[in-house]
Simulated scan of single mutants.
Amino acid sequence: MDYIDYYKVLGIHKNASADEIKKAYRKLARKYHPDVNPNDKEAELKFKEVNEANEVLSHPENRKKYDSYGKDWKHAEEFEKAKKQQQRYQRAPGGGSQGFGGGFSGGDFSEFFESMFGGGATSGRTRSAVQFRGQDYNAEMHLNLKDVYKTHKQTLNVNGKNIRLTIPAGVKNEQVIKIKGYGGEGINGGPKGDLLIRFIIKNDTKFMRDNDNLLTTVELPLYTAVLGGDMIIDTFDGQVKLTVKPETQSNTKVKLKGKGFPVYKKEGKYGDLYITYHVKIPSGLTDHEKKLFKELAKLRPS
């Protein structure tokens, strides 16, 4: 495997913070996403490289291994075990110089790894090939809030392969879902990696989402606020009739139980809808209306 400078791929310096890595990844992922560049093989390769770079650098442990072992970062644990074995062998009586071919200087990790687990073994035993789990893939899926109100299916293209996914209702913004076995191929017959999907959910509705609850503001006519009455209001999945109490003040809050957002992976369970009333003062009053308001003002002086 050729060495890929993941810092260079994301256009960041080696001391970049986690936020800088995240920003660089999102910017490039949007730029090279297959949906933005259909049938563009070069953009597809760039998108794959950007995802690989983010997979390594956005995880502190992976980044540490990459900084230490370069292209062989996935085998860092094996290198460490091998070094410890070598040290124990050299300290043991008769260990001498015939163990693993001399001290480990940290030069070519691939050569060292091959000599330990591949065709260059120096002991009298034949070592079997070590299996390694495949690399995890990262992907982003952009949806609207309305899209995740109900469970539905979506097709996601990962490295040229279409994957049919069931998106559960109630998925949250920035939530990551793992699809087991849809990552990179394993090494020497090892298991495949996983696909990690991060959901970016855009809210273009008049409802604000607060976990499983929804918040909205309803304009209340002055006369209804004073005298009370029935109103038809919008919920996320339709309209309902709401009875307003007389003398309702502006900024009064009411709760409609079960009219919020679906609870993730809990079929049939919903949060609540919280409504804040905003009393609307009438405008464009006629002379007669103004006269009536003046008479009311005389009845109840401030």
Rank of each mutant, 00 (worst) to 15 (best):
G184T: 12
T248V: 11
G11Y: 01
G11Q: 03
F293N: 14
E219R: 07
H33F: 04
G107S: 05
F293S: 15
K161N: 12
H75F: 06
Y66V: 02
Q239L: 14
I200M: 06
Q131R: 04
G94Y: 13
K81V: 07
I179K: 02
I281H: 05
R209E: 13
P191H: 05
S17Y: 04
P34C: 01
F236Y: 14
A29D: 00
F199S: 02
K22T: 03
D35P: 13
A121D: 05
E42M: 13
T155I: 12
G170E: 02
I179L: 07
K27C: 01
Q135K: 10
K46N: 08
K291T: 14
Q86K: 07
S17D: 13
S110W: 10
S68K: 15
I4K: 02
L57F: 01
G120T: 01
P191Q: 12
D210L: 13
L285M: 15
G103L: 08
K64D: 13
Y277F: 05
K153R: 06
K290E: 13
G271F: 05
T155Y: 01
Y270Q: 10
Q85Y: 11
R88P: 03
D230T: 10
L214K: 04
V148R: 00
F199E: 00
E174G: 04
G190H: 05
I200F: 08
L156N: 01
N15D: 11
P262K: 03
E52P: 01
L10W: 01
F132Y: 06
N213K: 06
Q249W: 07
T248L: 13
I177H: 00
Y223Q: 12
K192N: 09
P282M: 15
Q239V: 15
S123P: 00
G260Y: 02
E49G: 04
K180S: 10
